[in-house]
């Protein structure tokens, strides 16, 4: 039986690729140290597969046809997309997917009432290229990209995202017969407002408030309620809601998260945070049945 062996979340700031050297040295050092810790912990769990959860920056699906959730079902993925590689200064790479499991996730989630649109091709930008370049040396660990609509109104609520993640967890634990060790890596956030009046701002107070909720192990229901779309938009519209991906990772965890790093990295144009959940959620009963 497949096992979830890790749950974590990290920023995917494009600045960590394309303009890393322009950020304040102390902030840069702190975030890079956090990424090193995260990479070491992730690799220590010996994952066969990473399921990455992140936002679609309107690159895979357009703003006029954006699904709430999507999954890349290809046997092999490639990134970054043309031109995006110049922006991120990340050399084009390829990485194995996991088509059988990705397809099962799409099809079994339907039976649990959740629609994940299958994509034969997911266009990677900073969402996956940046974290993978730090956390998956040599791109040796296979990867399934999961996309959530953080940008295009009406976005799914935090509660809906959490339930969608629970559906993924249930399918993995009750329907998949493989023996993979699976790591969940959410990417995005924290506060930022790309393109808006606060393009260069970071809401550090919001970021620290959100991270504190995770660090205190506050009940998930409360986090989902208090960190609403409205609250996230107040902290930076059109960017902060990338934390929906973190809330999906939360569904695989229990108890407090450990904050590995946080800095208000204005030059990178977002708050940069990383967390690791030491305790994982209990395994779902091995029986069919709706969880959502």
């Amino acid at each position: 039986m497949a096992r979830i062996v890790a749950a974590c979340a990290t920023t995917h700031s494009p600045g960590l690729g394309g303009w890393i050297e322009h950020e304040d040295e102390a902030k840069r050092t702190c975030v890079l140290a956090g990424l090193e810790i995260l990479r070491d912990r992730l690799l220590a769990t010996r994952p066969d597969l990473i399921i990455g959860i992140s936002t679609d920056h309107m690159l895979t699906s357009p703003p006029y046809n954006m699904p709430d959730f999507a999954i890349g079902v290809a046997e092999r993925h490639a990134g970054p997309a043309p031109g995006i590689d110049l922006w991120l200064r990340i050399k084009p790479f390829a990485i194995d997917g996991h088509r059988p499991l990705a397809r099962l996730l799409v099809n079994e989630a339907v039976k649990l009432g959740v629609n994940f649109v299958p994509h034969e091709k997911v266009d990677f930008d900073d969402n996956f290229s940046v974290p993978l370049s730090y956390l998956n040396p040599g791109m040796r660990i296979a990867f399934i990209p999961v996309l959530v609509n953080s940008f295009v109104p009406p976005q799914p609520s935090p509660q809906k995202c959490y339930q969608a993640a629970l559906a993924l967890k249930t399918v993995i634990e009750t329907k998949w017969t493989g023996a993979e060790r699976i790591a969940i890596v959410a990417t995005g956030g924290l506060s930022h407002e790309p393109g808006g009046p606060r393009n260069f701002d970071v809401d550090e107070a919001f970021d620290r408030w959100f991270l504190q909720l995770l660090a205190e192990g506050v009940a998930h229901e409360r986090i989902l309620r208090e960190c609403s779309l409205e609250r996230m938009n107040q902290a930076g519209e059109g960017g902060t809601a990338e934390l929906l991906a973190w809330m999906m990772a939360m569904a695989f965890s229990q108890g407090p998260a450990e904050i590995l790093a946080y800095e208000a990295t204005h030059v990178w144009r977002c708050g940069s945070g990383l967390v690791w959940w030491p305790s994982l959620a209990r395994v779902a009963p091995r029986a069919a049945g709706a969880v959502v």
């Binding site: 309107m58 031109g83 110049l86 922006w87 790309p194 393109g195 393009n199 059109g238």
Partner: peptide, 29 residues
């Protein structure tokens, strides 16, 4: 137009490298 596309529009017009897009982005913002 969705504001998220503002930065991509600036970069499509002026370039994807920091030295190409950053000064003009600051000016435009």
């Amino acid at each position: 137009v969705h504001p998220f596309y503002f930065n991509p529009i600036i970069r499509l017009t002026h370039g994807e490298d920091w030295d190409e897009f950053q000064p003009i982005t600051v000016e435009i913002m």
